[in-house]
Write a protein that binds this DNA or RNA. Structure first.
Lengths: 221, 221
DNA sequence: TAGATTGTTAATCGATTAACAATC
DNA sequence: TAGATTGTTAATCGATTAACAATC
C-alpha cells in the first residue's frame, strides 16, 4: 500500500521541506530587486541579501530546473516568475477565516495577503453576536455553515483564529471538508492526517526561546 | 578577540538553537499534563504528545542535566520547573510594543502573554492621533521617547508591529537602546548585530510555502 | 531482585558547503 | 577568446535516531 506512493512523484527527486520553505523568501527578495530596477543578479548577490550562502541558493534552485546563465547570473524577472509558478503563486487561492475575535478581525483587515494572490472570501464565527456582522467587507457566517461555505467559495486554505479549546475541533471539521492547508494561530499544534499541511503562528514560543538567550547571556546562530 | 568568546561558556557544551527552540514546547506539554493531574511521564509518552521520538527528548534534556529516574521516567512537576528555570520563565520580562496600528492593538489586547511572565509595560507609536490614547491599559507614548521608555520600564524585549518601511529603522533604534530580543511582525527580516535575537512572525511566508504543496499535490513532512 | 527507562555513545541520516567541470 | 558564474558532485557538518550499559 505505502509502496504505491513511491511511484507518485514520477521519478522527480523529492524536494526537502526546508528548501520549499526558503522559496518564498527568494520570491520576496527578487520582487524587491525588481522594484529597484535590478535586472540581473548572481547567487553571490542574492546570498548577501538573504544571508544565505551562494552555494545553497544554487543548490535549492537546482531541484526545480536551470534558471541561470553561466558567467552571468540570473535574470531577476525570469527567476521570479519561475519561482512564483513553482510555488503556485500565479493563481488566486481562496481563503476562509474561522474565528472573528480580535485576532480574526486583525487578520481580516490586514491588506497584506491579497496582493500575493490570497483572497479572503469568507469569515466564520460561532458567537451569535458576531454572526451577520460585516468585517473587512465580509459578512460573518455561522461555523455551522462551514461545509457549505467552503464548497460554495472553493476555499482551499483556512486561517484558524479560534480559542485554544475549539481549535482541534475546528481543524477536524476543516479536514473533513477537504481543506488541505491550514494556518493556525492558536497556541497548540493541531493533529491532522498527513495529507494536510498545518503551519502554526505561535509568537509565545518565539518569546520563550528568546528568553533562554536573555537569561543565559548568549546568542543564537 | 573572537577567541575570548570560546571561554565564556565555561566548558559547557554549546546547546544547538534547534534544541532551545523545542524547550518551550516541552514546557507547554508538561504544563498540560500537570493540569490533568499526571505526575510521572516517560520519554515515550512525552514523545507521543509532542510528535517527537523519545530518543530526541532524552538527548535534548541531556544538554541541561539529568532530570529523570531510570525505570520510572520524569516527575512532571519537577521537569517543568527545571525547564522553566532554564528558559528564564520564572522571572517577569518587561515588553514594549512599538507600533499601535490594528496589529499592535490586537497584540496589546491579547491576554495570552501575561500568564507566561511577559509583562506588556509600554506601547509606542509615531502617529500623533494615536499617541496619548489608552490601549489595553497603557498610554501610547511617542516613538521619540523610545530610549527613555525602555530605560524607565527596564524593557528587555520589544515587539515590533510597524509598517515595513519603518521596521529596520525601529529595530536599529531598539538595538541602540540595548534591547537584545525582538519579535518582529513586519514581512521583512531586519538585520541586527549577532548579539541580538530576532524572531519573525511572518504568516505570508507560511501561506506561500503551503501553496507549493497545494499546487503540486504533495505533502510536507 | 527483575523490569523498566534513563542518559549517553555510536550509527545513520539529511542538509549545507566546497570545489570544479561545464558553459555562457 | 578569456573571464565569470552556473549546475552538480563530493566532502563536510550537524542533527536525529538506534542501541545499550547504567541504574532506579
Amino acid at each position: 500500500m505505502a509502496s504505491n506512493f513511491d511511484h507518485e512523484n514520477h521519478g522527480r527527486t523529492e524536494v526537502p521541506d526546508v528548501v520549499v520553505s526558503r522559496l518564498p523568501q527568494y520570491v520576496r527578495t527578487l520582487t524587491q530587486l525588481l522594484s529597484e530596477g535590478v535586472q540581473i543578479a548572481n547567487s553571490q548577490q542574492l546570498g548577501e541579501k538573504l544571508q544565505i550562502t551562494p552555494a545553497q541558493i544554487r543548490k535549492d534552485l537546482s531541484y526545480f530546473g536551470r534558471f541561470g546563465k553561466q558567467g552571468r547570473g540570473y535574470n531577476v524577472n525570469h527567476l521570479l516568475e519561475e519561482l512564483r509558478q513553482i510555488l503556485g503563486l500565479t493563481v488566486t487561492w481562496n481563503v476562509a477565516v474561522v474565528g472573528v475575535g480580535r485576532l480574526g478581525r486583525a487578520i481580516l483587515s490586514y491588506p497584506g495577503f491579497t496582493p500575493d494572490g490570497f483572497q479572503l472570501v469568507a469569515a466564520l464565527d460561532d458567537n451569535p453576536d458576531v454572526v451577520g456582522q460585516d468585517v473587512g467587507g465580509l459578512t460573518v457566517q455561522p461555523v455551522a455553515q462551514l461545509n457549505d461555505v467552503i464548497q460554495r467559495h472553493e476555499v482551499s486554505i483556512a486561517i484558524v483564529a479560534v480559542p485554544i479549546a475549539y481549535t482541534q475541533g475546528v481543524v477536524d471539521r476543516l479536514v473533513e471538508c477537504g481543506v488541505k492547508a491550514i494556518l493556525n494561530y492558536a497556541p497548540i499544534m493541531p493533529q491532522v492526517p498527513e495529507h494536510v499541511n498545518v503551519r502554526n503562528i505561535d509568537p509565545l514560543l518565539s518569546l520563550q526561546s528568546m528568553t533562554y538567550y536573555l537569561a543565559n547571556g548568549t546568542v543564537s546562530e
